[in-house]
Amino acid sequence: QVNIAPGSLDKALNQYAAHSGFTLSVDASLTRGKQSNGLHGDYDVESGLQQLLDGSGLQVKPLGNNSWTLEP
């Protein structure tokens, strides 16, 4: 069960990665100043990332080996 409060997208993504045990490689300029609506409930990694990114204009991309990145 994930419980991440709304706020900074950077912070939300870092909390989610730490909670879910995956690696997220992101260029900080992509997420700077963006906000997230947070995340509450049970999600697989990709669904949770998509939910956190909702409205940010960013997309999640798998890199393999439980690693992910973001792209515009």
Rank of each mutant, 00 (worst) to 15 (best):
V60F: 10
Y43S: 01
S25T: 13
T23Q: 11
D27G: 04
D27I: 07
S25W: 14
D42H: 14
P72W: 10
W68D: 01
R32V: 15
L13F: 00
Q50H: 10
G64V: 03
Y16F: 15
D42G: 07
Q1P: 13
K34W: 07
Q59I: 14
H40W: 10
L58G: 03
S29L: 10
L53H: 00
K34Q: 07
S56C: 08
H40N: 12
N3Q: 10
V45L: 07
A18W: 08
V26I: 12
Q50P: 00
D10W: 15
N66Y: 06
W68F: 12
E71A: 09
G41F: 04
T31Y: 06
L70I: 15
S20Q: 13
N3W: 13
G21E: 06
S47F: 08
S36P: 02
W68N: 01
S20A: 15
Q35K: 12
H19Y: 12
F22G: 02
I4C: 06
S29I: 10
Q35H: 13
G64I: 03
Q1F: 15
N66W: 04
N3G: 04
A17G: 05
H19N: 09
P6T: 05
Y43W: 12
D10I: 11
L63I: 10
Q50V: 11
K11F: 13
P72L: 13
G33T: 03
S20H: 15
Q51R: 12
G57R: 04
L24C: 08
N14M: 15
A28W: 13
Q35W: 15
L13P: 04
Q50C: 12
D54P: 03
S29G: 10
L24N: 02
P62N: 13
S25V: 15
N66H: 07
G38Y: 04
E71G: 06
G55R: 05
G41E: 02
G7M: 13
Q1A: 13
L24E: 02
L52G: 01
Y43Q: 03
I4N: 01
L58D: 00
K34V: 08
A5K: 10
K11A: 14
S47E: 12
V2H: 06
G55N: 04
V60M: 11
S20T: 11
Q15T: 09
G33P: 07
V60S: 10
K34D: 06
D10C: 13
L39H: 01
W68H: 03
V2D: 03
N65M: 09
S47Y: 08
V2S: 05
A5R: 09
T31A: 03
N14H: 14
L49I: 08
S47R: 12
R32I: 14
P72Y: 11
N66C: 08
L39V: 06
G48L: 05
A18G: 06
A12N: 06
N37T: 08
A28C: 14
P72E: 10
D44N: 07
H19S: 10
T69G: 10
E71F: 11
G57M: 05
I4A: 02
Q1N: 12
E46G: 08
N37M: 12
Q35M: 14
D42L: 15
N65E: 10
L70F: 06
S29R: 11
Q35F: 15
G57S: 04
G38T: 03
G57A: 04
H19R: 06
L30S: 05
D44S: 11
S29N: 13
S29T: 12
S8E: 11
S67H: 14
D27C: 12
